[in-house]
Design a protein around this nucleic acid. Sequence first.
DNA 1: AGATAAAGTGAATCATGATTCACACCTTTA
DNA 2: TAAAGGTGTGAATCATGATTCACTTTATCT
Lengths: 221, 221
Amino acid sequence: MAYRETEKIQARKADTKAKILSAARQIIALEGFGGLTMAAAAKQAGVATGSMYRYFPNKIELCTALFRQLSGREVDEMRAIAKLDLRPAEALARCCFNFTQRAFRAPVQSYALMAEPLDPALEMERLIYRRAYAEVYQCIIERGIEAGDFEELDSHTASLAVVGMLAEPLLAPLHQFYSGESEPFDSRKLALSISRLCLNSLGSKAQLKNQDFDEQFNEYA
Amino acid sequence: MAYRETEKIQARKADTKAKILSAARQIIALEGFGGLTMAAAAKQAGVATGSMYRYFPNKIELCTALFRQLSGREVDEMRAIAKLDLRPAEALARCCFNFTQRAFRAPVQSYALMAEPLDPALEMERLIYRRAYAEVYQCIIERGIEAGDFEELDSHTASLAVVGMLAEPLLAPLHQFYSGESEPFDSRKLALSISRLCLNSLGSKAQLKNQDFDEQFNEYA
DNA sequence: AGATAAAGTGAATCATGATTCACACCTTTA
DNA sequence: TAAAGGTGTGAATCATGATTCACTTTATCT
């Protein structure tokens, strides 16, 4: 045996893998999954097309890894809010604001993750992450029900509905960015409307004041 | 000039065009857009591949026509409910039930229309139809606000949120059908939860009794 | 019937983009 | 430094499926 992978090489490989993922991310942020070809990603990462296959067995795996990385971050963000020991209504409202906020920070990428046509194999991933979002919300909702802040309802369905409520109103404006016709957009106002609908749907009596939202908005801005 | 299109031919052409659309629809209902190739649709319709292009300039146009036909029906269904001169809360609840009901009647097709990865060109159509659904809901919502049945809120955002609330909780179960693992599913219970969330979100005080939903469900079953 | 203009056909062609592969080039170990 | 076992390369290959086109058949009109 005259060769064994050494630390240095492992590090380099990890680095290259990260570079590839990063390149793919850049492409997605600019053009969505539609612009992501193996050749383009290779070029952007500064490696040969063939090298891509030393790091990912095929394109699907690359896309999956990327999708998980990006969606994972978003879900983690929600989880972090859920951990904060806030009143459930406050927590959900923050989720609304944070989600909306972040979506418009990287609109094309967000659109790609949320709604862009993907390889069918990836659609499963999307469902999995929607489920993950829903679980976070479900947890908050259940706390709210226990605390008597929300009315008794099917927390599972409610959590999915919240996912829909948060995402759907963003799609049209995000698509604008995706298709190039970006216009200035007041995401704060939108988030405010959505969070109200969201809390209403759960039967929350909490009426967070506008002020609260403003502060929170700035906190995450 | 020794040839001019006659009525008979026009009728036949219209018929063939319809046959092609119908064939495409059958394929979609069974396998989603993923299974829809020009060759497959031609075979199903009983025409040659090349003939497809006498009726549709390209695949996108065919898909678009089909998408419009199918989505149009669904939206019309909602419009019909909106016209019924019901209390806004009742109208919205019916929309919930009808939408859910119809979705599970043709689950693969519904999934295809709602969420399946499509050619990007079609994604625009999807947005347009989401918008159309939203407009129907917006109309109902505004009536509800005027009547004092709903609280004052941004009816535009609310209508989009309703679209999301109605669609999102259906996706996972519909996907089951799409990917082959169909399981018996209680769509009635789901519709009940959703309609409650929906009305809540608008600040409706109306509490439709379970009974009402049961009847309505049967009406559309 | 003969001329004209479509409509119908399906095998061949194209386009796109993922994937492979034979070869060059490093790293490690003895 | 030679052998062994990677890693890197990018042009060539493949797969899929849309689209074309030269040709056949059908319909209409004089």
